[in-house]
């Protein structure tokens, strides 16, 4: 069940994490795990990032570091920033609705 939910909300979660700060793929994976989503397989994470890039919400650039190998960094575009805010608001509305009906189940239980 959680897996299916995540599938629907991964794009939103990624937009929100990127709204906080730009990051590279593995870093985003770690931050999703820390947020409580569990391990997100790369096979799910990277196609999602690619889709956001294709939609013009995310931009990428490669950064070489002095210590490690070069890494691809993801950042929001202005469109992405607007989409993150809009979708987060939509999500809060939706969550409130689900909370209200979920509360009914808890009351009667």
């Amino acid at each position: 069940m959680r897996k299916q939910w995540l599938h629907g909300f991964l794009d939103l979660s990624l937009l929100c994490l990127l709204a906080e700060r730009r990051d590279y793929g593995l870093g985003l994976g770690q931050r999703l795990a820390e947020a409580g989503f569990g391990d997100i397989p790369g096979g799910t994470l990277y196609p999602s990032l690619l889709r956001l890039e294709k939609q013009g919400l995310v931009q990428t650039d490669w950064e070489t570091s002095t210590v490690g190998p070069r890494r691809k960094y993801f950042d929001l575009t202005p469109d992405g920033r607007a989409a993150a805010a809009a979708r987060a608001a939509e999500w809060r509305e939706f969550r409130a609705a689900v909370d209200r009906v979920a509360a009914l189940a808890e009351e009667t239980a």
Partner: peptide, 11 residues
């Protein structure tokens, strides 16, 4: 998965 994501419309 990549191919499917890459086919998303650009605009």
């Amino acid at each position: 998965s990549l191919a499917s994501a890459a086919r998303q419309p650009l605009a």
